[in-house]
Nucleic acid binder design. Structure first.
Lengths: 354, 354
DNA sequence: GCAGTCAACGGTACAGTTTCCGTTTTTCCT
DNA sequence: AGGAAAAACGGAAACTGTACCGTTGACTGC
């Protein structure tokens, strides 16, 4: 029994000190056992480990963080937890980091740049070892500050022109090009785009969209491009109204590439409600390849964003920043998007004959 | 400039000590300013706050946690981050806790009880102030240990018989009853159930299912109940095969209540692929009311689990445990599920005539 | 002029762990 | 046996912030 057991409640967590007193050793020795320091004899090591089990000892990570300067915490800031894309990223990330003993602190910025800044501040106060941000900022200032303070950080999904930062994401121009080229192959000639907010992903995709059309010599009437300022959560509603507007045009589009899958779902609803058919009258392609794309009213052709891979690669990159000695120059990992073709773009001319 | 500025890198975070030295005050005074202690004169307060801004001071929360014994961290353990239900819960929770300055550390147990225990240990090592768990444990031992150590915790979604614990979730028996009664009202008479793994939610729902049928005097052949040992992620695949098996029965069911929406989506796919119609031949009801339920092949009738409300109420309960003085006895918050009727159960007899 | 009060500030002792450098003990060699 | 080297262990400071209590000086009232 430890000397202090009378005054310390039986329910308080054991400390190095308690074990030391119980075994007539110093805290230093116990600490060394904990960290597998070679100084310790086999016999002592076993005695200590035994007592640790008995007392259910767990090192106080806050105390350890204070002295080592490393918290073993990674901070993740995303615009919206409910969006399946970020859910997947968080999952992959969490799995990758767990193996090395890192925990993940999660913050949702609700697509609000000011809130995002606050959350980042909060994470910095916690002295997270690395920050992972899918940013909704329009300015790059926050990240310059991070650089000044030498806080390692990784941008995911959305990046900034002119900011040399670590980045993991898909090649968004390729996303737009892939989907649009596919629509053209499917026989569409009046192809519209429903875009997202003013972030790199949306801009990259619309650029790819333009490039694909231009390459095939197809004109893009400006009214065929609808850029929407919705957050990631209201995509379906915004896709719905955008599509309604596109259908009033003369002639209406016969193919639509949507910024993301929720938007595409909204667009699909608008098309069907107008009495038109998907894909015969209007083919629709989305982006994100959400898990349930196959179960939709018309199974949705979508560009896979590799969300799981993004999480996993981000974990790798973050760990490299932390464990790797030399502060390497910023790296970019651009994953190749993959087109997953489903019924929403399978127009007669392409449909496999039975 | 602080005296130590030569030896401390310009990029290291400022400490109370730095500010104190700069202003010829003691750390104690600075600390008091930080915490709005009444001792401080207006003039000093302003001087200090000014210097804090200049140095971009952020209190070291690890150090504070060490001395106060409170980390201002809540730990959340869920079986699967990708499941939209837990995404919503996490979002609601995060929002509720943020207001009081708490951060959320997220762990995914991947539906593995052993991993869940490890994650809980890890969170305890971090000295989280409160633990929120959607548990996949089959035994109750882990939570007894938490009680011994007087760690406040809240169970969500899944609870345990015979464990007096704080709980927030829906009334699962009511969920089953609601959906099943609705199927009966829709004219179904051969009603089957595709259930989930061996946790309280699945058991409660199947119990409600039985109760509803019993109340109306409808028999339940044992082969009409398929309990599946899938995790929350593989629901669609498992629903698919389960439904395929149900369709081989003679007579096949004309209504199915599924444990959750992914399962229902899988079941729907199986029905449609078999050349049958939903809801005319087989009506389908799910649970969870996922955001895209409205966009499915056949829009899915589903019981809403109030995921947002669960997150929000959990935040409230957790904060009450932390801020509230007296350690109150465990409370249970049972939210009322709501049925959301869509086309998948709108059988002719119930369809509104035009 | 002096006790009493109050506002404003500081000294010191922690919290639980690691790190740096000593000290003691054991082992080995000649 | 004597000495050196290796093995095993410990003291004290450090990390940053907070809590408790003490100190200082100015002002009040009589």
């Amino acid at each position: 029994m430890g000397i202090e057991w009378e005054t310390r409640g039986y329910d308080m967590p054991a400390r190095l000190k308690d074990i030391a007193q119980d075994l007539n050793l110093s805290v230093v020795t116990i600490s060394k056992v904990l960290r597998d320091h070679p100084d310790i004899s086999q016999q002592t090591r076993e005695r200590v480990l035994k007592r640790m089990k008995e007392l259910n000892y767990r090192p106080n990570l806050a105390a350890r963080a204070l002295v080592t300067g490393r918290s073993y915490i990674a901070g993740l800031v995303v615009p919206d937890l409910v969006h399946p894309f970020f859910g997947q990223v968080a999952k992959g990330l969490s799995n990758g980091l767990r193996k090395k003993g890192y925990s993940l602190v999660l913050s949702s910025s609700e697509d609000d740049p000011e809130l995002e800044r606050q959350e980042i501040e909060q994470l910095l106060a916690r002295r997270v070892d690395v920050l992972i941000v899918a940013s909704t900022q329009s300015s790059v200032e926050t990240f310059h500050r991070l650089q000044e303070q030498k806080i390692p950080y990784v941008l995911i999904d959305r990046k900034f022109d002119g900011l040399a930062a670590n980045f993991v994401g898909v090649d968004d121009a390729a996303v737009g090009e892939l989907a649009t080229a596919h629509l053209i192959d499917a026989g569409c000639r009046r192809i519209a785009h429903i875009g997202g907010p003013n972030v790199s992903t949306a801009l990259g995709r619309v650029a790819g969209f333009r490039r694909a059309l231009h390459a095939r010599g197809i004109a893009v009437p400006p009214e065929y491009i609808e850029m929407r300022e919705h957050g990631d959560d209201a995509g379906d509603a915004s896709g719905y109204t955008a599509m309604q507007r596109l259908l009033t045009l003369n002639p209406p589009p016969d193919g639509v590439f949507c910024y993301n899958d929720p938007t595409a779902m909204g667009a699909m609803k608008a098309v069907l409600e107008a009495g038109l058919r998907v894909p015969e009258d209007v083919a629709i392609a989305g982006c994100g390849n959400v898990a349930y794309a196959d179960f939709l009213r018309v199974p949705l052709t979508s560009v896979d964003q590799q969300s799981g891979a993004i999480g996993e690669r981000t974990a790798r990159m973050a760990l490299a920043l932390l464990e790797g000695g030399a502060p390497s120059r910023p790296k970019t990992v651009l994953l190749e998007p993959k087109l997953v073709v489903r019924a929403s773009t399978l127009r007669p001319r392409l449909k496999p004959r039975k």
